[in-house]
Design a protein around this nucleic acid. Structure first.
Length: 672
DNA sequence: AAAAATAAATTTTTT
DNA sequence: ATTTATTTTT
């Protein structure tokens, strides 16, 4: 009914304000226009890269608001936080100001937001911790240790190796399969261990509950469970959100699709995506979601957007030629009417260093030709492929920023500081306690276990620690100093209230972690200190500790890049280095895709069925380019485990000859 | 028995 | 460079 009301509003508006509609007509093409203004209840936008699907989604949201839909009735689901931010910003620009009350975020962050309000239904409190992958694998390790009477050493190692256990369990949870089914289908070597894995999963759940914590999967699954088992709550949200808009639908998994389904009937649903750009199978993305969408919703209006506005016809031709090798896909004919440009260049280099020198040389040439560094990006399959280039860039003093790859958050000193904050915010967080305790000399894992079980028994771990009643047999001084620090921090956090997270971090350094840092990293003390200061700067923008920890858990893009970028002056004109996954949705005038070697890309770890996914990844990479595209490969591997650099990637070899211009790097690099 | 010190190994992609 | 396995020290 509510949607009908909105629709009435909508139609009334349609006649009332011609200028907004005129603007839409001017700025959008036919398909985008009908997408943005359609009043169908279910809409699917099938759109190729560079066709402006995100743009259409933003305009649709703006249009709804222009038509009088209150912003708080709109739920905008994106795949990355970056995308959510970008949409909000574009929406703000379109409407002159950012609408208040609109919910825009990733499935995970919206899930966290909703679950904070209903945490008690899952025996959690609203200050629950969100576990990252390291945290969960640590819990798995403890669960495995608890079953040491069943598993011998070799078996224990098997399960912990490369997160096998986590992958099995996560796979089961995200694909609506039982652990038995997952093992039977994909891990047949573990058939004998099905009951063991089931028991481990139970132990893991129990540990999460004890720690008042959710992992990433919980944020989706428990959200779904909330809606399925509490119809009244579900109805509340169905009433609230009259419009649900989903970006990058091809990357949703089964649970996420079910979450969208929960709104069907009450809200108008609208999703955009491109099956050819599905690159998150490793996170259980299910392309079937987008392929079968029209069957699930027979009344859905399907709008195709096939014109590419981003790239030259030459680049589009290469992309089309490559993706055509994937047999299972929706037929699409991406085309570009842009003025022609140069053919993409395929570069062969002897080794990574020569490749780096070539790329550097071309970047400098492009800059002389009038491009600025921010118009250029270098993309790669895996983060290690960027090291040679980074060396060359630093030598030449070219400023750059990296996306994806080694995480700022994974730096140990940052995690140490965060452990203090987590203990303060959620004193049940066993992982955080463990980290803090082990920082101190004389305190090891065994002592931690004893201390922790005592603290947990008390029902108020933080209070118990501060009271000083508990003391370990060894490492008394370390424990005492930790307790003093926590007492001080707790008092400060309590008194401060709105004091700001940054002052809390400063206090952590002053009363405890400063000395520990100096002791543990005598050589890098200064550098790491600067990293923590940057953390504090970022923290100052958050109103509460909870908000800060949550956005840290769900969005590390805040901390991408590191000290190199500082030297270059942040915000200034700089080159982009990015994994292809992190480059999704972006575009640059000139794009270099490096390390296109058989074995690296497609990754040798991928199996046959993954080859299509790797090719889609290649497709995403090349379609980031507007005018200049360079694809490079090298054949001598310089590093030990980079071994088997097996010559040019299949994705280069299979390209029709007329698509590109071949070049040998040595002629350009050593030419004179 | 536990913790500290030393040696070895490990890196796809991300919420 | 940081986690993880192994040895040495307390």
């Amino acid at each position: 009914m509510e949607t009908a009301e909105n629709r009435a509003f909508f139609n009334q508006y349609r006649e009332a304000d011609e200028t907004w509609l005129e603007r839409l007509r001017r700025e959008l093409n036919e398909a985008q226009f009908s997408f943005a203004t359609s009043d169908a209840e279910v809409i699917l936008g099938l759109a190729g890269p560079g066709s402006g699907k995100t743009c259409a989604l933003v305009y649709r949201a703006a249009h709804l608001i222009k038509c009088g839909v209150p912003p708080q009735q709109i739920l905008l689901l994106t795949f990355t936080n970056k995308a959510a931010e970008e949409m909000k910003e574009r929406l703000g620009r379109l409407l002159a100001s950012l609408p208040e009350g609109l919910w825009a975020g990733t499935f995970h962050s919206i899930g966290a937001r909703i679950l904070r309000r209903h945490a008690e239904l899952f025996r959690r409190r609203s200050n629950f911790t969100i576990l990252d992958e390291d945290d969960s694998s640590s819990l798995f390790k403890q669960a495995v240790a608890a079953l040491s009477h069943v598993l011998d050493e070799e078996e224990r190692r098997l399960f912990l190796k490369r997160g096998l256990l986590g992958r099995i369990i996560s796979r089961a949870r995200n694909s609506e399969m039982s652990i038995r089914e997952v093992i039977e289908e994909e891990y047949s070597f573990a058939l004998d261990y099905i009951p063991v894995v089931e028991e481990l999963a139970r132990l893991y759940e129990q540990k999460k509950e004890e720690s008042n914590a959710f992992d990433f999967d919980d944020l989706l699954l428990r959200w779904l469970e909330l809606f399925q088992e509490h119809p009244a709550i579900r109805e509340e949200y169905r009433q609230r959100f009259a419009h649900v808009l989903v970006d990058e639908f091809q990357d949703t998994n089964i649970v996420q699709a079910r979450l969208v389904d929960q709104f069907a009937g009450a809200a108008s649903l609208c999703a955009v995506g491109d099956d050819a750009q599905s690159i998150y199978a490793f996170r259980y993305a299910h392309v079937g979601n987008i392929l079968s969408f029209p069957e699930k919703y027979p009344h859905a209006q399907v709008i195709r957007m096939e014109q590419n506005y981003r790239s030259t016809p030459e680049i589009v031709a290469l992309a089309n030629a490559s993706i055509a090798f994937n047999r299972v896909q929706l037929p699409k004919k991406l085309f570009s009417k842009n003025p022609p440009g140069e053919k993409p260049v395929v570069v062969g280099a002897r080794n990574a260093r020569e490749e780096a020198l070539y790329v550097l040389d071309r970047i400098q040439a492009l800059c002389r030709g009038g491009l600025s560094l921010s118009d250029i990006a270098v993309l790669y399959r895996s983060s290690y492929l960027s090291t040679e280039l980074e060396l060359a860039l630093v030598r030449q003093g070219v400023p750059y920023r990296t996306y994806g790859g080694v995480k700022f958050l994974q730096k140990s000193h940052i995690k140490d500081v965060l452990a203090y904050l987590k203990v303060l915010h959620n004193p049940a967080d066993a992982e955080a306690w463990r980290r803090l305790v082990l920082l101190h000399p004389g305190l090891g894992p065994a002592t931690f276990e004893r201390l922790w079980s005592a603290l947990r028994e008390s029902g108020n771990p933080l209070g118990a620690a501060i009271s000083g009643k508990y003391a370990p047999a060894r490492g008394k001084e370390g424990w005492a100093s930790l307790c003093r620090a926590l007492a001080e921090l707790h008092a400060h956090a309590d008194a401060g209230g709105g004091e700001g997270v940054d002052s809390l971090i400063k206090l952590i350094l002053d009363c405890s972690y400063g000395q520990i840092l100096r002791r543990n990293y005598p050589d890098q003390y200064e550098e790491r200190m600067r990293g923590i200061e940057r953390l504090a700067e970022n923290a100052s923008r958050y109103g509460s500790l909870g908000a800060f920890l949550e956005s840290l858990a769900l969005d590390d893009s805040l901390f991408e890049g590191d000290s190199e970028e500082e030297a270059a002056g942040s915000g200034s004109d700089c080159l982009t280095l990015s994994t292809i996954h992190s480059a999704k949705g972006k575009e640059w005038e000139a794009v270099f895709v490096i390390g296109l070697n058989e074995g690296s890309f497609p990754s040798r770890r991928s199996e046959d069925q993954d080859l299509a996914e790797e090719r889609r990844l290649f497709y995403v990479a090349v379609t980031r380019a507007k005018r200049h595209l360079y694809l490079s490969t090298y054949w001598e591997s310089s590093r030990g485990y980079d071994l088997l650099a097996g010559g040019p990637s299949l994705f280069l070899k299979e390209l029709p000859r007329e698509c590109f211009t071949p070049v040998l790097a040595e002629e350009a690099v050593w030419g004179f």
